[in-house]
Design a protein around this nucleic acid. Sequence first.
DNA 1: AAGGTTCTTGACAGCGCTTTCAAAATCTGT
DNA 2: ACAGATTTTGAAAGCGCTGTCAAGAACCTT
Lengths: 341, 341
Amino acid sequence: MRENVTLSDVAREAGVSPSTVSRVINGTARVDARKREAVLRAIERLGYRPNLMAKGLAQGRSLTVGVVTQEISSPYYGEMLKGVEQALEGTPYHPIFASGHWRADQEEAALKVLVGRQVDGLIVMDGSVPAERLLELAQSMPVVVVGRDIPGLCCLSIDNLQGAYEGTRHLIELGHRRIAHIAGPQSHLDAVERLRGYKRALEEAGLPFDPALVVEGDYLEPSGLLAVEALLTRGALFTAIFAANDQMAYGANVALYRRGIRVPHDVSLVGFDDLPSSSYFTPPLTTVRQPGLEMGWEAARLVLALLEGGEYNPKPLAARLVIRESTALLRSSGVRWVHPD
Amino acid sequence: MRENVTLSDVAREAGVSPSTVSRVINGTARVDARKREAVLRAIERLGYRPNLMAKGLAQGRSLTVGVVTQEISSPYYGEMLKGVEQALEGTPYHPIFASGHWRADQEEAALKVLVGRQVDGLIVMDGSVPAERLLELAQSMPVVVVGRDIPGLCCLSIDNLQGAYEGTRHLIELGHRRIAHIAGPQSHLDAVERLRGYKRALEEAGLPFDPALVVEGDYLEPSGLLAVEALLTRGALFTAIFAANDQMAYGANVALYRRGIRVPHDVSLVGFDDLPSSSYFTPPLTTVRQPGLEMGWEAARLVLALLEGGEYNPKPLAARLVIRESTALLRSSGVRWVHPD
DNA sequence: AAGGTTCTTGACAGCGCTTTCAAAATCTGT
DNA sequence: ACAGATTTTGAAAGCGCTGTCAAGAACCTT
């Protein structure tokens, strides 16, 4: 097992030409059975492993697909990445990740890194790179976008408005009339869609929209906590909260816990995403499930299809309400309004 | 902005030789100021981006470091990966990930993929690839191992025994005498160390070790839930639980919640890891913090150092108890033993 | 101004693999 | 057994870049 066994070493060992070795490895052409055997044995004996970089250079492709996420450690992206990884398993392709950290400039940097590494295809998750930039990239390689809708590009996203609508609607059906909303950053399309879904459900139920009941967060836990604090100190009256994602719902829950406000006894809480940990939350969180793993999977199958020039119709992905234990009927016996201190 | 601008294109455009272009790009030798300018302008004008695969082939290195995790979507590894990513930022290296899914064969497959992609260095997190295999790999490239101790290799790990000892100790100091332990899979060294830490704390306090109080889980939430169920149905008496990781603590908490057993009022709970979500758990979880991000960071700095042939003394990383709200003094007024139904 | 140094530069040979292309080997049919 | 059709095979030219090497330019020195 020497240092760097190359294809030529194998060729010499097997007594054939490098071309032949290449052919048996890739199955690109018929090769006499005896020679094939000899080659395989030589490969075995030498412990040969093809150099993918050389192969990539020669073929003009790298057998990698670039994935731009916002934050690799976020549980939400974690699921998607896992989906991508799974979908690519068994194919010659391998994912390579880069994070945009929710900032357009960092996203652009991530794209540059991936392009420089000659990725053959690209999956872009959320983010705020200009659409034109993505369209430009799409001219030279397959690009699929998750979580945004860009005309002219393969996009994969759920109906955020519909999901938020259902989450809010669930609360209304439980009898809640004053429902607070912890919104996501309004610079993100999905966040504004969720806010719209919330409004629509209210409207349809004939409930007034009260701006004092919505606070904007940044999709991270602390902002959920802060949002509830804000709501409480400004004296807002509410019996339920619809958070634009699970992480903010977690934060909200802690704030409520600190005030001795019990979920769902005093206040019902619904999130959005259904992170893996949400079913182990206490109480298990009612939430609008966003199929992260499936989205990652479908995105990857899609680039693969584009790469091979084939067709692939991604399964429609829908947000779906998952009712667990953080929501309950509004207590009939007189509403106990939550108030500051 | 043409399709594939190569270095020679730039050379032609700037009226110099390819070598010169290479030199100004890499700063490998002095170049006349005027020519340098011309080259830079040409690069700009043509929108040239170096092909890293070609560069890699020519230099015999890929500028990538391979990272073997067990599960890319796990919050614990998420933190470590983020650390690696951060540490590599600004260097010419980029991480490339592959998951072992807690199975030796898959880990081996992951290693093969990474080696085939010519990674220049390797970070292996936990797992059960045989030590000899890693030693063998270490002969041809820098290898750093996180979470295991392998003589002859750069290893990074915390003192699991000490951490578990402190977690258990904390419970004892709060007055608890009957402390259950949800252990990790005993096939993993860290899990057995944590069990040992638990035992040592007990022993030191003169408390008996009761095998009926320990249940083995698999580090995932459901197993924590099941463990508590098991404990409860077998009639075990306990006032506190020390779980070998946070995820199992989450599961345990749900099981307790379902039975109407309140944390920390009735039972105190401590976890291990301090996942990002643990401080937003309800109640915020007391846990033994394992500095995932720092571990990832240090591991990456370490391979970098090995790669450059430099020296790097990683900061010592210690597990440290983080006291939050899931643990409380044993209620003095008569212990209310928890029992099945 | 000539000889000696030191810099700057371009030609060229790879890195390990793929992929024509045409020669060599094998197989047809008669 | 032989011309012709059909494989199977190896030589060779890249893929885009780096790095050695020796030639040429620029600088000294006396």
